[in-house]
């Protein structure tokens, strides 16, 4: 039993399953996003009015938030896997990297959510 410590950490399978589930969800969500933004419409025709109309219902705000949360967490979880592969368990570098990944994840999730849900077209219309 030497060399390999038994650690009471049984959550790695959740992370593994999450990567697969989020990937499948992202496949649908991102392809839908690309189709709407770049096939039906194009970046030449998308303007303020388009976004205002799109965000008039909560559906598209939740849709975009879902993409943001899933893509960010999927990517960061992948990086976490790499960090855990190449840093020592219980070491300083692993802690620094993981804290960094969590910080990036939280900051960008909050920032994105703030932009999505504080957007108010009427506030601009009044000017």
């Amino acid at each position: 039993m030497q060399a390999t410590r038994v650690r009471p950490n049984g959550w790695e399978w959740v992370s593994w399953l999450y990567m697969r589930v989020s990937a499948v969800l992202l496949l649908g969500l991102v392809l839908g996003h690309l189709y709407i933004m770049h096939v039906i419409n194009s970046t030449d025709t998308i303007d303020f009015a388009f976004v205002a109309q799109r965000f008039a219902t909560p559906f598209w705000r939740v849709y975009d938030l879902l993409i943001l949360v899933l893509a960010l967490s999927h990517g960061l979880n992948g990086l976490r896997g790499i960090v855990n592969d190449y840093t020592r368990p219980g070491g300083g570098w692993r802690l620094v990297w993981n804290l960094g990944l969590w910080t990036v994840g939280l900051v960008f999730t909050l920032l994105g959510a703030l932009v999505l849900f504080s957007f108010d077209p009427s506030a601009f219309a009044r000017r």
Binding site: T4, V6, R7, P8, N9, G10, E12, W13, S15, W16, G81, N84, D85, P89
Partner: peptide, 12 residues
């Protein structure tokens, strides 16, 4: 034992 961090899910 294999569900732990050093176990099966470390396989890429």
């Amino acid at each position: 034992l294999l569900a732990e961090r050093s176990g099966a899910f470390k396989c890429r």
